[in-house]
Design a protein around this nucleic acid. Structure first.
Length: 437
DNA sequence: TCTGGGGTCCTAGGACCC
DNA sequence: TCTGGGGTCCTAGGACCC
């Protein structure tokens, strides 16, 4: 290496992930579970959603139905627990609080995973690995949960590093891909299957394999343009991310949900509208609660019901209906009324129903207000009146909530909402001049 | 009258994630 | 007997408009 420009890849992201999260939470409060084979089951105790290492070693896959697991469980004395989401949520909060001590840039990615942004923090630790070990130690000490930490130049690489830290004991729970010499990195990446990459699922793995791409190294060395042409923009991004070009940024503020789903399989089959109504009303009230918690309102609801597709001997029926609400609402009674109205339309007699639920389309009330204004002062209204409305709105909310985004022709101005950015001018005189051509 | 290009909006379906 | 419950984003295609 005689070059005078030595490149040191700074890891920009860390991913911290709790090992076997639900099982580890249960162990934190019941030491008898430590070193024992343990599984946690989903709602209705339907299937396994968390497995201890001992159970994974027996070959039990995520999502295995409990009835398929029963014999094995008896044979190996597996301890089986129903899930306790209140507990898990609480433990998750504690972990995230600890992580905020390590970086001001935090994205809570899921109940047991967290990305940290690291830029500017390099001087605080001798190496990223030291930071990682410190994170592990503190979380272990304060919550008794085991975590692994991965470092990388991009989120995708950090995620991959975390996977490596988990699977390969020689890393001792912390893997830093960014500081790894490239020969070692290549050797490592060529031992990992392409399906382990974040965003590469079963289907795309199959296609990649068919094209002769089997390992992460091979995927990284595939031209991103080819990935784009073959699979679309999402895969293109993954290609760049693997090469160390960051395409996915840290999302520190949690955005409100656009859809809120509440659904559940029934413990036993049900047969009539009355029972379905009860369940749908229940789901609707819980969805409406979530809706109000994120300060949204709802302008359409979808109701769905289905029979049990696994009972092949049964007559199958599944249907859904979307009920638009002319006046957006977050009032539980109004939403339930609409849902039951929809349910009546799709409910048929003579079927054994297994599952029902609702999906709300959630909207920020401010957005609704903007939309109504835009309808009111339609696209053909290229007048100063429209501009005046924009100015008023922007002043009232102290930020640019509407902006001009395109000039279609001399005849029409189009507008759209812009809450965050970018903000173009809202002054009539500053608008670009449209040329007829 | 005919033709074409460019654009929006909506929906369904596919793929992925935890 | 018994098979989870949430979410996101992208794309294609059709209807419609100018």
């Amino acid at each position: 290496m005689s070059s005078n420009s030595v490149t040191i890849n700074q890891p920009m992201f860390a991913l911290v992930d709790v090992n076997n999260f639900y099982v580890s939470c249960e162990r934190a409060f019941n030491p008898h579970l430590v070193n024992q084979p343990v599984v946690v089951l989903s709602n209705n105790d339907g299937c396994a959603v968390a497995r201890s290492n001992e159970v994974k070693a027996l070959g039990v896959k995520m999502g295995t139905p409990w009835f398929q697991l029963k014999d094995l469980a008896k044979q190996h004395h597996i301890i089986v627990l129903s899930s306790n989401y209140t507990l898990y949520g609480d433990m998750s909060d504690r972990v995230m609080t600890i992580l905020r001590d390590f970086s001001p840039y935090v994205e809570v990615y899921s109940i047991d995973e967290c990305f940290l942004g690291l830029h500017g923090l390099g001087k605080l630790w001798p190496t990223p690995t030291d930071m990682g070990q410190s994170i592990r130690q503190r979380i272990r000490q304060w919550t008794s949960l085991p975590v692994c930490v991965g470092f990388g130049a991009t989120k995708t690489l950090a995620k991959l590093a975390n996977h490596i830290a988990k699977k390969r004991s020689e890393f001792n729970g912390v893997c830093d891909l960014a500081s790894m010499p490239s020969s070692q990195l290549d050797a490592l990446l060529s031992t990992i299957e392409v399906g382990e990459v974040w965003g590469v699922g079963r289907r795309i793995s199959q296609h990649l394999n068919a094209a002769g791409i089997h390992t992460v190294k091979a995927l990284r060395d595939t031209p991103a343009t080819w990935l784009r042409a073959r699979f679309g923009v999402v895969m293109e991004r993954i290609g760049y991310e693997l090469q160390g070009l960051s395409c996915l940024s840290l999302e520190e503020v949690s955005t409100p949900r656009k859809q809120i789903i509440s659904s559940r399989s029934f413990g036993q089959l049900i047969y009539n509208l009355h029972e379905l109504s009860e369940s749908v009303a229940y789901h609707m009230s819980s969805a409406a609660e979530k809706l109000r918690r994120q300060k949204s309102t709802c302008n359409a609801i979808q109701v769905f019901i289905q029979t049990n597709p696994f009972r092949e001997q049964d007559k199958q029926y599944s249907n859904c209906i979307t009920v638009p609400l002319p006046n957006a609402s977050s009032d539980t009674r109004i939403l339930i009324r609409a849902a039951l109205f929809g349910l009546k339309h799709i409910c048929r007699k003579g079927y054994a129903y297994k599952k029902a639920g609702v999906i709300l389309t959630a909207i920020d009330p401010l957005t609704l207000y903007q939309d109504s204004l835009l309808t009111q002062y339609g696209a053909d209204e290229k007048s100063a009146r429209l501009m005046g409305v924009m100015d008023q709105l922007n002043q009232r909310y102290g930020r640019n909530i509407v902006s001009v985004f395109s000039v279609g022709s001399l005849k029409s101005w189009s507008m759209r909402r812009e809450i965050m950015s970018p903000c173009y001018t809202t002054k009539w005189s500053d608008l670009p001049i449209a040329h007829a051509s």
